[in-house]
Simulated assay, not measured.
Amino acid sequence: MKNIVASLEYWNNYLYFRGLDNNTISIEAIENPGWWIKINLSNTDFENIRFVPIITNIDPENGGENNSENWLCCYIKDKIFNGCGSINKLSTIIEIFFNWIEEHGYDESKYVKVAIKKPPIPLEGFNIWSFCIKNKYIPIVDKY
């Protein structure tokens, strides 16, 4: 099973390195209960690639009502990947998204980068940096 949190972090790097900082990923809890994930594909390599909608245990004849505690719906509309599902489908939806973009050339290993970042709150008299290596932050402190 894929580490979906790391995959989302790598996707965020993909967006950053392409100057697409305004592209968003949202994960919302919905009242069914369930999840709704939206991933903006605008200006990515995947914005015009066909995605075959996936619909499981949803009754289109009954206004789209789900008829199970195990429902799922993934589709693209207006260059936004939408994934909705029952409470136990969060990781499945994210895996569907990453499997689809990987089938079309996305390679997350290209976006596992070493990043250097400065913390938002500086400490007087010290420079504090952290290196991010494969999602682990290692603080580096030097006195000035």
Results as ranks from 00 to 15, higher is better:
E103S: 15
I37V: 13
N32W: 03
I128N: 06
Y137G: 11
S86E: 02
L90A: 01
G63D: 14
Y14G: 03
I96L: 05
L20T: 02
G34I: 07
E65T: 06
N48K: 09
D142F: 06
W35L: 04
E9R: 14
I80G: 07
E108Y: 15
N70M: 10
S130I: 05
P53R: 02
E65V: 06
I39S: 02
L90M: 00
W71D: 05
I121E: 11
G63Q: 10
I25R: 06
D21F: 12
Y106L: 13
E28F: 06
I55K: 15
G85L: 01
K136A: 11
I58H: 01
C132P: 01
S68D: 07
Y111G: 02
F98H: 05
W100P: 00
I39G: 01
I54M: 08
Y111H: 09
E28C: 12
W36Y: 12
N127M: 02
D78E: 15
N13Q: 04
N43M: 11
N23K: 00
F97V: 00
L90K: 02
E28D: 11
H104L: 09
G64T: 03
E124R: 09
I27F: 02
D142M: 08
Y75E: 08
I116K: 04
L41Y: 05
W11M: 00
E31Q: 14
K38W: 13
K117T: 15
K77C: 07
C73A: 05
G19Y: 05
D45K: 15
N67C: 05
F126I: 09
Y14H: 01
G125E: 00
N127P: 01
P122S: 10
I30M: 15
W11T: 00
G83T: 06
N12A: 10
V112Q: 14
F126P: 04
N62G: 08
E108C: 12
Y137L: 11
S91H: 12
P139G: 03
N66Q: 04
N13R: 02
N48M: 03
N48S: 10
F17S: 10
I76N: 00
V112N: 13
N43A: 14
I133S: 01
F97A: 00
K118N: 15
L123R: 15
I140N: 11
G83L: 07
E61K: 10
I128Q: 11
N88G: 05
N99A: 13
N67R: 11
P122E: 09
F126C: 08
F17K: 08
N22H: 04
P122Q: 10
N40A: 14
L90E: 00
S68P: 01
Y75V: 08
Y106V: 12
P139S: 09
L41V: 07
E47M: 10
S91Q: 14
N12D: 07
I94T: 03
I4G: 12
K113D: 05
I93D: 04
N67H: 14
Y144E: 09
I58Q: 01
A115G: 09
E9G: 12
E124Q: 09
I87C: 13
N43L: 08
L20G: 04
I116N: 03
G125I: 08
I49S: 09
S130A: 05
W71Q: 09
T44L: 07
M1L: 15
D107M: 14
